[in-house]
Write a protein that binds this DNA or RNA. Structure first.
Length: 280
DNA sequence: CACCTTTGCTTGATTACTTCA
DNA sequence: CATGAAGTAATCAAGCAAAGG
């Protein structure tokens, strides 16, 4: 019921009539609608001329006749369906106008024949201007309070419900986009870490091989080694400290930074032939 | 080249459900 | 705890453009 009630949200005069002009740049009346559905089709070309006379906006068409519609189309079936719904529930967002009342009378008259056709949804397309305006407002704040919603709807000559839906969809799609971007970043990060892991494993293997090689080559006074190679214990074969873990990018960065050790400094120099490294 | 049809994408709208005051 | 408003997630479906025959 609540959901149904939402349908009434912000029903303005034109909406209540179910004859609201619908947007769509360069949009023409759907050929499907014209050819298949014996429906009342109402269109007009400019939202600024929204308030055209009532008789012009409400006319029953033959299955193939439509009111001239260069830019907008509106299925009477859907419109009447809306009207019926509105008739059944209270309007919460905006007061029901006299025009709406009149519309209801009209809708009742055509209820039975229209209700079967009312299942199909017609949808408007916002004009570029409307979309741009909404985009700008969305940049300012991604949610709307009722007052802002009403004001926006009024400015754009849309129903508050339409503005609300637009913001809902915009939020959802922004979030989706953001999630996709994050997912992509995580994939890249995963790939980088996989590479790093492979590199370290290779390095580890090389050290293991070195361990079993014959006489070690004489070391220079100072050698430069990647930090990762310095913390493996040849005795227990454990990778001690940060070298064996991938817990953070920060530690990874630190690990990658090579540093100098003095070959003649027994305190700092890791000898492959000592029993345990200091890290153990 | 014009015309259909198909396909995929965008986007307005709906529904069910959740959260919160 | 019940309620209603407002939000999200998932989905539907119209409209459109591009591709291809």
């Amino acid at each position: 019921m609540m959901d149904r009630m939402k349908l009434l949200d912000g029903c303005d005069t034109t909406l209540a009539l179910g004859l609201r002009s619908l947007h769509g740049a360069g949009e023409t009346c759907s050929s499907r609608q014209q050819q298949v559905e014996p429906s009342l089709t109402l269109c007009h070309s400019d939202v600024e001329t929204n308030m055209i006379s009532r008789p012009a906006r409400l006319s029953r068409s033959s299955p193939h006749s439509t009111v001239n519609c260069s830019n907008y189309s509106f299925s009477a079936a859907a419109a009447v369906s809306d009207m019926i719904k509105k008739d059944q529930i209270n309007n919460k967002d905006a007061g029901v106008s006299g025009e709406a009342e009149l519309c209801r009378g009209l809708s009742r008259a055509s209820n039975e024949e229209a209700i079967d056709e009312a299942s199909s949804r017609k949808k408007l397309r916002l004009t570029k201007e409307q979309s741009a305006f909404l985009e700008n407002k969305f940049k300012e704040h991604s949610t709307l309070n009722p007052k802002q919603k009403q004001a926006l709807a009024w400015q754009l000559k849309l129903r508050p419900r339409q503005v609300e839906v637009w913001f809902q969809n915009r939020r959802a799609r922004t979030k989706l986009k953001k999630t996709e971007v994050e997912c992509e970043l995580l994939k890249r990060r995963f790939a980088a870490l996989t590479d790093e892991n492979m590199r370290l494993n290779k390095e580890l293997q090389e050290l293991k091989d070195l361990k079993f090689s014959p006489a070690p080559a004489p070391l220079p006074l100072f050698i430069q080694l990647p930090a990762a190679t310095l913390v493996i214990c040849p005795s227990c074969e454990r990778i001690a400290g940060a070298a064996g873990s991938l817990e953070s990018e920060a530690s990874s960065t630190v690990r990658r930074r090579p540093f100098l050790i003095a070959a003649n400094s027994p305190k700092n120099f890791f000898s492959p032939f000592s029993s345990h490294s200091a890290a153990c």
